[in-house]
């Protein structure tokens, strides 16, 4: 059995300290009684209380949540389709362009994506607001979703799908009864990833939005520019807490599901060797 060497243990410990200490400090100072971030004035939850009275932030949070749910669902459907097209459709005219289009948003600077989206909406004369943000988020999230599902599709034995068709299932039935159940864990992770991407996004939403659809990151950003306030720490802590719980629960349940599947697939693969 392998053990941690002192060098590896130290580098991991330092690395994780670097990753987590800033977040930890932010959380701790959200419970600070004092308004001055650097002066510890004792424990208090009063900033959480004042959040509840801040209608602007509450509205923004509600808009953000709705955008995230709708856009991530759209992104997961489109991304799964895109992954199936990339992995299962073989060569077709324009495939290179298509895989480029899936790939580019992953690394494209957000300012460019945001600006180009906005100019499209203006050119189409669309009223900017909730739906334009949803479209913008769905578009760049679908590429992340496609990558996640694609990895899973590459993994699994194509002959399982062929077997279903050989036994008389039409392509649509094969997808619903065989492919989808097998790739389900990756589709769920794709949704979660799209959801958090939408929840986090500041830049693209700033470009794509219009009056009446201010998202939480936009609200936070405009307040941060005015200075550090414990209220921001409090809302950040709530977001971190929710996302952490969500991710932990999801990863625990999908891990169990995918472990089971992994074992199943491994057994089938081992049978093939």
């Amino acid at each position: 059995m392998r053990r941690f060497s002192w060098f590896n243990a130290t580098s991991i410990a330092l690395g994780f300290a670097f990753l987590y200490i800033p977040i930890l400090l932010l959380v701790i100072y959200s419970f600070n009684e004092s308004k001055l971030v650097t002066v510890w004035g004792g424990w208090s939850t009063k900033w959480y209380g004042s959040l509840l009275e801040n209608e602007g932030i509450l509205n923004a949070a509600w808009v953000t949540l709705r955008v995230a749910i709708v856009s991530s669902t759209l992104a997961t459907i489109l991304g799964t389709l895109a992954a199936v097209v990339l992995v299962r459709m073989g060569r077709f005219r324009g495939r290179t362009l298509f895989s480029g289009l899936i790939f580019a948003p992953l690394v494209m600077p957000e300012v460019i994506t945001g600006l180009s989206m906005l100019l499209l909406f203006v050119a189409l004369n669309m009223d900017r607001g909730f739906w334009t943000v949803v479209i913008a988020h769905a578009t760049f999230s679908m590429c992340f979703a496609a990558v996640v599902v694609q990895a899973r599709l590459y993994d699994f034995d194509k002959s399982v799908e062929e077997a279903a068709m050989d036994l008389g299932a039409t392509p649509v039935k094969t997808f619903m009864e065989v492919t989808l159940p097998i790739i389900a864990p990756s589709v769920i992770s794709a949704w979660l990833l799209s959801f958090t991407l939408s929840l986090d996004d500041l830049v693209i939403a700033s470009f794509a939005t219009g009056p009446g659809a201010t998202t939480l990151p936009m609200k936070i950003y405009s307040q941060v520019r005015l200075g550090v306030t414990p209220e921001i720490n409090a809302i950040s802590t709530i977001m971190i807490g929710l996302v952490t719980i969500g991710v932990l629960v999801a990863s625990y349940s999908t891990k169990r599901a995918s472990q089971r599947q992994e074992r199943e697939l491994k057994a089938v693969d081992a049978g093939a060797k």
């Binding site: 800033p22 977040i23 400090l25 986090d200 936070i220 921001i232 977001m239 952490t244």
Partner: peptide, 10 residues
């Protein structure tokens, strides 16, 4: 998974 903006803010 936690917000980019919040991490920078921290």
């Amino acid at each position: 998974w936690t917000s980019f903006l919040i991490r920078v803010y921290a």
